[in-house]
Computed example of a mutant assay.
Amino acid sequence: MLHVNNIEAVYSKIILALKGMSLHVPEGKIVALLGSNGAGKSTTLKSISGLLTGDGGHITDGSIEFQGKNLNNMTPDVIVKNGIFLCMEGRHVFRDLTVEENLMAGAYCRKDRANIKEDMDKIFVYFPKLKALRSRKAGFLSGGEQQMLAIGRGIMAKPKLLLLDEPSLGIAPLLVKEIFQIIKQINQDEGTSMLVVEQNANVALSIADYGYIMENGRVVMQGNADFLLSNEEVREHYLGIGKEEKNYKENKVYRRRQRVVW
């Protein structure tokens, strides 16, 4: 469905943020994009969604294709109409609008207006807390409730591909687990393909079919979620689980080495 082919992205014509980044998202699957701060994860999502230009960046090489269409020169609104919706890091709900009005905003580009109420009711089934708060202004919601609203607003757009940028950020661990279970349920029920950017590798891989690990603007490892969860190097460097005795020199070599595992 989505093919990111060896793209390079630059900010302010100086800072090279992506250095030959490639990934693929199959139809109906959840793909996790993992890595530490500054690895280039959010820049990858902004490149796909067309928002990179607004941040002073641009793609200098490579291509992004979605269902056979090249997205490189498309504006964000056209990309949304083609079926890609980005839930940005930090939620970015409309604080002065109610929960219901925020959800309606997600459906702004839809032409099937007759189905909007039914889809909103479906959102309230996935997120019962939002139903109880449907008349409350979004600015008065907790961080977890705002994240639920942001995801619900994204689903209201009926996307073919939903991009989620750090959905666990600033949320209590128990609520993170609940939100990720709902994300998985939406994927199964609606068939919505998803690309999830996360620092919390454990929770992301628990729902993903496939995963990519980024460092310094490029992919250094990829594989099925089960493989990545059981891989000793991934467990040690990204999940905080591993051998007690660590060889610092070996770690540095691993950090510099590109490893691709199918």
Rank of each mutant, 00 (worst) to 15 (best):
M1A: 15
E8S: 13
I14R: 12
L18E: 01
K19G: 07
M21V: 03
M21Y: 02
H24R: 14
L33G: 12
L33F: 05
G35L: 00
G38T: 02
T43R: 00
T44E: 01
S47A: 15
L51M: 10
L52G: 06
T53L: 13
T53S: 15
G57H: 05
G57C: 06
S63M: 13
K69H: 11
K69I: 11
N72Y: 05
T75E: 15
V78M: 11
V78N: 08
K81N: 12
G83Q: 02
C87K: 01
M88N: 06
G90F: 03
F94L: 09
C109W: 13
K111R: 11
R113Q: 04
A114K: 14
D119E: 12
F124C: 00
V125R: 15
K129V: 15
K131M: 11
A132H: 13
G144D: 02
Q146S: 10
L149P: 11
G152S: 10
G154W: 07
I155C: 10
I155Y: 07
P159Q: 05
E166H: 01
L169D: 01
G170T: 08
P173A: 09
Q181F: 09
M194Y: 08
L195Q: 10
V197S: 00
V197E: 06
Q199E: 09
N200E: 06
N202E: 14
I207N: 12
A208R: 08
D209W: 06
Y210S: 06
I213F: 12
R218C: 08
M221E: 08
A225H: 04
L228A: 04
L228M: 08
L228T: 10
G240C: 14
K246Q: 15
K249I: 14
K249D: 15
Y254E: 08
R256P: 00
R257T: 15
V261Y: 14
W262L: 06
